[in-house]
Structure formats: structure tokens, C-alpha cells
Design a protein around this nucleic acid. Structure first.
Lengths: 346, 346
DNA sequence: GTGAAAGCGCTAACAC
DNA sequence: GTGTTAGCGCTTTCAC
């Protein structure tokens, strides 16, 4: 056993690979080992200690696949990021990535593992059912509705443990956590207007539902102030394409607008760079506001006025609601307030 | 069956949950269904088509836990991010997050799922063995060596399918993919020197092994040019703490240095903001270079001179090497070249 | 408090 | 080509 031991201690994976091996060494039955290690149900204290000692000594780790199969639960939560028409969109979208980081921490804290999947729904209509049906996950968190709102609604009817990050729409059936985008849009536009802007534009892809809500909020503000409608300047999210598109928009409309509300801070930063390059003063000639309050918002010159989403709170909300749904509860959606962060671009 | 069907088609999870259910409906044995769905070994074409039709109709998905348990492989690759003493470091480290995004895409392309874990080694000395021994993953990719170099070396001796993103050290035993940090550091310093800097400083935590190599590269350059040694200005990675620390460093040393090489673009951007706030001209008074070439490097004012890491190539390399190791091959480490991207801060 | 036995859903020999 | 059988490693009745 001593030779074994040295190997075991180094690698943590030795001759004691199964609960049965361990049972043999401890001179008990596999069932008892299972009970001892699970910590519940009554096991003689001495027996338990002996088993635990041997387990530790040999670096024994129970096989989670087997346990999962038997108990019909895996201890794994699926996190899926659907990539919409603009397939590469999220790859550099630090917002989603930051959310993912917080989610990982929060799930870990709750004792769950995280299985990550990025899917392109247009290549794979079955993306959500496939993930759910894989048997690998106890529940699923969808990051972003992309253009898959209806698909998600369908699934929500028959599958409980799912929570979605995204936009809330009156009467929807899936449980969502997200910022009040319409409110956020309104706050941004109001700030631009208060800073003196009268002809507003919205920079971003308004076919994305969250962005559409931000746009709508901005329209609300403009309407209320009797200003002309906000002009939509569509862009993709990937920095390379967006940079070009922004340049074109500015070239075409720079004279006609004096306030830009960008759908994300990333777009706002690109826009700022482009305006700077063309000698347009910000906030002198054009006021600018972003959305998200990512770290970059503090680092632009001048620093960016934006609308803050509380990403950590979002992650906590997603996990909390999911765990409650896993426990059988029905849960309402959670709408987080949007908060204006006034810096120097508006 | 029609009632079933409508329910099934909506949710994709109906009465046909197991291969045995499906076998009963198709009038064959479970074994045949397994073979038909696996696509290999000979199955009568008509039988196969029938089985496939029923499977599709009922939205059947094989249970991957069961399959994994039986085949002793899961189709899942573990990705683990060890968080060193500076626990929160990576949470906002867009470099690791970007790498993760590319990894997810690359693993998906290869038909693998990704299980993500962030661990705090100081709370959990057993982090790597536990993950490997869980039975949930076929192989593991470690993102960043943090302060766990020795732990990783130990594991590498007894466990094949592991590849690490990080720094390469002469004679190490674990397979690593990473940028040539020392070369990168040298390139950055040479650029600062060519731009006229003579008294260099390195901004970042030199106890992190990758950063230490960048620092060493900078020292090489300074020594070769007969300049005084590069001054180390330690910082944490989290933006909040780093911002303060940078401010303090600049207050203390602004007059004594004329070139700063920051360990990452994030730090460089913070540094630029701070220099700007204090009225120090860049590159006039102080030359500045970063590392990574993240999107933010193009967006600072003025845009940042930096050293590019090819993140996409890194992700491809990690996955490629891992799959080869999974196939039993021995593999060498992969060192990617560093490339200077000259912009306007040096 | 512990052992024996059945079985989670799937795959892979081995028969035929 | 297909059915039968024996597990993968674990948990959980059910006895005792």
C-alpha cells in the first residue's frame, strides 16, 4: 500500500477509484461508504471517520456522472449564449462576459458547476431543447434573448428551471432578469436633452429587443419634450464592423444631430473616437451617452455619461431565481432599476 | 399519440425520454436504437430511418450522463481559472474573458462542451485534482498559472489531457500555450527607448509569472542599452485598487521616469487616464506601452502602443493540443510570437 | 447502523 | 443486422 500511497498523494487518482474499492479497504459495503461520504443518514461515527480517512489518504473523488445518473440531478447549471443574426456579436461584448464572470462566482458559491454553451440558433433551431434534454444540467440560464424570444417562450411553457437575462415584455411567460431598458433609454435621452441636445440619434441595432426598448425609452423622452423623433443609426456590435458603420453615419449626419445615445458603452467609445478623429467636439458640438457603465466608460476622454446596469446584482438575481425554480417555486421576473451616471460627455 | 405529439413538439421533451421508450415504439431493441442513433456499425437503412423519424418526432435526446458513464468519456472539457492571491483579479480581466470566448467557440466547433470553474486555490488546495477526478470532464484547460505553477507541474506528471495557458519556463513538465512574454517585454521596452525614454518603469504585479517574464524582457532591453534598471511599480489587477496604486506611483515617481511599460492594456489605460489628470503629456513627458492589444488599446487618447497577443490563435492552440493529448499523443508546448503594435503613446 | 440488491439510461460484447 | 446481457459507479430502498 505504501507504493500506492505515494503515487496517490501526488496525483490524487490512485487505485481507489470507486466507492467499491474504498469499501473493500474499509471492510464495509459500498452502501455504507456512500452514506458516510454523503454525510447524511446515520452512520456510526467510527465507521465514518475511518472511511473519511481512507478517502482522504487516497485522494478519492466520487464520480459525479454516476452519482448524477442515479440521483437524476447533476449539480450543473447550463449557461447558454445565443448568438443572433449578428453571430460574432458577443465575442467581444464585455457586458455578457462580465455577467458570465459574476455568474460563475455566484453559481460556485451555491455549489453548482457551470456548463457554458454558445449557440448559433440559425444553424441549430433546436439549441435550447437540446441543451435542456441533454441530461447534463439541472437548469439553464440564457444570457440574452437575441432574436429567440419566441423560442424561449415556447420552452418556458414546459420547462421550469430556466431563467433568462434580457428584456421584460408585458405578459411574457419566461422568467427574466434584466435592467429596465426603457427607463434607461429615457434617462439617457433626458440627460442629452438637458445638456442642450435637440436632434437626437440612437446608435445600435434596434432589432435586438433590449436595444429596441432603450430606443423606445429615448423616443418617449423626445416626444415628451416635443422634439423631433430620434433618428435610428443601425450598427453591428462587433467593433470592426461597427467602427466603419459609425464613421459612415457620422459622415452622413454629423450636421443634422447634436445628441447621440449609443446602445452600449462599447459603441459609445467607438463613436467618441470617431467624432474626435473628425474634429467634432464632445460634448461641445455633440452630446453623447452610452449604456452599461463598463470600466471603459471611465476611461474615455472625456469620460462617458452612461446608464449603469448592476451586473453583479443581475447575476445574483439570475442564480437566486433559478434555485428557487429548481425548488419548485413559481417566480416573477426581476427588473433592476437603471441608473444614470453623469460624467462629461453629456 | 397525437396528444403526445403536440406536447412533445412544443417542449421537445415528451413521453419518449429513454432509448427504451423509443425502442418500444419502433418495435426494436434498445441496442438497435443506440446503434442507429450513434450512426456507426451496420443498421438496416429502413430501421435506421424509422428510428430517426420517431426520435425527431418526439424530440428525443439521449441522456449524456448515462452515455458518458458507460463510455467513460463525457464530451466535456473543463476550463478552470485559478484566482491567485489577488482573488478578484480576473473578474474584469478582459484578456481571460476574451480567451474564454474563443475557447468556447473552438471547443464547440470540435463537438465538445465546456465546463467552467473559477477557483481560489488558497481556499482549496485540491482544486485541480478535484476537477480532474470529478468524472465530469475528459480533459482540462487551465487558464493562467496564477501562483499555482508547482501544483500544475505535480498534476502533469500523472495526468495527460491537460493544457495550460501561461508562461513557458525552461524544462517545465506541463504543456503550455502562451505568448513569448519575455520577447514581448523586450519589444515594448525597446520601443519606449527608441522613442527617447531612458528611465523605465514596469507597472504590474511581478510575482505573477507571466508578468515577471515581461518585466525580465524589459530589463534585458534596458541592460543591453546601458540604461539603469527598470523600476518595478507593483499593482493589483482589479481596476479599483489599481487606479489608486497607479496614482500613488505616479505621484511618487513621475519626475524620475520617462517611460512606463504596463503589464496589461487595462493597466496602461488606467495609467494614461491618471497621467492625463495630472497634466503629464503622453508621449511628450512620459512614453507608455501596454500589453495584449485589447480593443481598448485603439480607443484611448492617444491610442496605445502595445504588444499584441493573438488570442484566437491561442485558443485554437489550446484546443488542438488538448485533443491530441486526448488521443494519446505527447505534445510540445506552443509559444506564440509577440508582436509590437506601434500607436501613439510611444 | 449496515449489507444486499436493484437500477438510473446508455453502450458494447457476444450470440444468433 | 438485431436481440440479449452485462455492466459503467453510484444511491437508495428494503431487510435484518
Amino acid at each position: 500500500m505504501n507504493e500506492d500511497k505515494s503515487a496517490d498523494e501526488k496525483t490524487g487518482r490512485g487505485t481507489v477509484r470507486t466507492i467499491t474499492d474504498l469499501a473493500r479497504l474499509a471492510g464495509v459495503s459500498p452502501g455504507t461508504v456512500s452514506r458516510a461520504l454523503a454525510g447524511k443518514s446515520l452512520v456510526n461515527t467510527k465507521t465514518r471517520e475511518k472511511i473519511e480517512a481512507i478517502a482522504r489518504e487516497h485522494g478519492f473523488r466520487p464520480n459525479q456522472m454516476a452519482s448524477g445518473l442515479r440521483r437524476q440531478k447533476t449539480g450543473v447549471i447550463g449557461v447558454v449564449i445565443p448568438l443572433g443574426h449578428d453571430s460574432r456579436q458577443q465575442i467581444s461584448d464585455s457586458f455578457f462576459m462580465t455577467l458570465l464572470g459574476f455568474l460563475a462566482d455566484e453559481l460556485t458559491r451555491q455549489g453548482y458547476d457551470l456548463m457554458l454553451r454558445r449557440v448559433v440558433p440559425e444553424n441549430d433551431a433546436d439549441w435550447l431543447d437540446r441543451f435542456i434534454g441533454s441530461g447534463m444540467i439541472d437548469g439553464v440560464i440564457v444570457i440574452g434573448q437575441s432574436d429567440q424570444f419566441d423560442r424561449i417562450e415556447d420552452v418556458a411553457d414546459g420547462y421550469g428551471p430556466m431563467v433568462v437575462w434580457g428584456n421584460h415584455t408585458e405578459g411574457q411567460r419566461h422568467c427574466v432578469v434584466g435592467t429596465d431598458n426603457r427607463l434607461g433609454g429615457r434617462l439617457a435621452a433626458e440627460r442629452l436633452i438637458a445638456a442642450g441636445a435637440k436632434r437626437l440619434a440612437f446608435l445600435g441595432d434596434t432589432t435586438a429587443i433590449e436595444f429596441a426598448a432603450r430606443f423606445a425609452g429615448a423616443q418617449d423622452a423626445a416626444r415628451r419634450m416635443d422634439l423631433p423623433p430620434v433618428m435610428a443609426l443601425p450598427t453591428h456590435l462587433s467593433p470592426e464592423r461597427a467602427a466603419e458603420e459609425i464613421a459612415a453615419h457620422i459622415a452622413a449626419h454629423a450636421g443634422a444631430i447634436d445628441g447621440i445615445f449609443a446602445a452600449t458603452d462599447t459603441l459609445a467609445a467607438l463613436c467618441l473616437t470617431e467624432l474626435h478623429a473628425r474634429g467634432v467636439a464632445v460634448p461641445g458640438d455633440i452630446k453623447l451617452a452610452g449604456f452599461d457603465d463598463l470600466p471603459i466608460a471611465r476611461q474615455t476622454v472625456p469620460p462617458l455619461t452612461t446608464v449603469r446596469q448592476d451586473i453583479a446584482a443581475g447575476a445574483r438575481g439570475l442564480v437566486d431565481l433559478l434555485l428557487r425554480r429548481l425548488a419548485g417555486e413559481q417566480t416573477e421576473s426581476l427588473i433592476l432599476p437603471a441608473q444614470l451616471v453623469a460624467r462629461q460627455t453629456a
